[in-house]
């Protein structure tokens, strides 16, 4: 097919192409707005499985405020340095990275993968302590992860929230989350 033919084909099918193109654009926009974000790469390749199985840690040991506060908190050097200081405990290059952070007093720039918008009040305590929801229900089987999750398992969209609230017959009064 030469160029002229191609032009002809395009001309003939212009409407269809236009529709296809716009569909792609719309899809891209929808993806951008509602879709999953790009894979997130964390500064340290943290191994949940190892810490849980070998070091016998539980979630709340590092995510200190899961049961008592709104935010569960992602541990940073203050928490890590309770165990990691001075001599490395393993041969992992990831631990070397961690020890560097601790030594220099720099904070580990963790990227947050679960979040709610500013106009939503989300409380871990409300869900974990009062609602007795297991971590696994929203965050998945983290204990089997050998490296950090690259995507959130569950998006905190209003639809998702309301679905669960309705299923479990808990309040879906706007004021419970928006104030």
């Amino acid at each position: 097919m030469n160029v002229i033919d191609l032009r002809k084909t395009i001309k003939k099918n212009s409407k269809r192409i236009l529709i296809a193109l716009s569909a792609v654009i719309v899809l891209a926009m929808v993806w951008e707005i509602f879709g999953a974000p790009n894979a997130i790469i964390q500064p340290i390749n943290y191994n949940h499985k190892l810490h849980i199985e070998k070091a016998k840690l539980t979630c709340v040991d590092c995510h200190l405020f899961v049961e008592t506060m709104a935010a569960a908190t992602i541990p940073n050097i203050e928490v890590c340095s309770d165990c990691h200081s001075g001599e490395p405990l393993s041969k992992s290059p990831e631990e070397v990275k961690l020890l560097k952070y601790i030594e220099s007093g720099k904070r580990i720039p963790w990227k947050k993968i679960y979040s709610v918008p500013a106009h939503v009040y989300f409380s871990h305590r409300r869900h974990v302590t009062i609602g007795e929801i297991k971590c696994i229900q929203c965050h998945g089987n983290v204990q089997e992860l050998t490296e950090p999750a690259s995507h959130p398992l569950w998006l905190a969209t209003m639809k998702n929230c309301i679905k669960c609230h309705k299923e479990n017959k808990v309040t879906y009064d706007c004021l419970a989350c928006h104030h």
Binding site: A118, V120, R125, R126, L175, A176
Partner: peptide, 24 residues
């Protein structure tokens, strides 16, 4: 308490956010 933007109405909420904390 969330921050409001231009173009919305707001009013006293009886500090409803405090109620949520107290309930918890």
């Amino acid at each position: 308490v969330s921050l409001r933007m231009k173009g919305v109405v707001e009013k006293c909420s009886f500090c409803a956010h405090r109620l949520q904390k107290v309930k918890e």
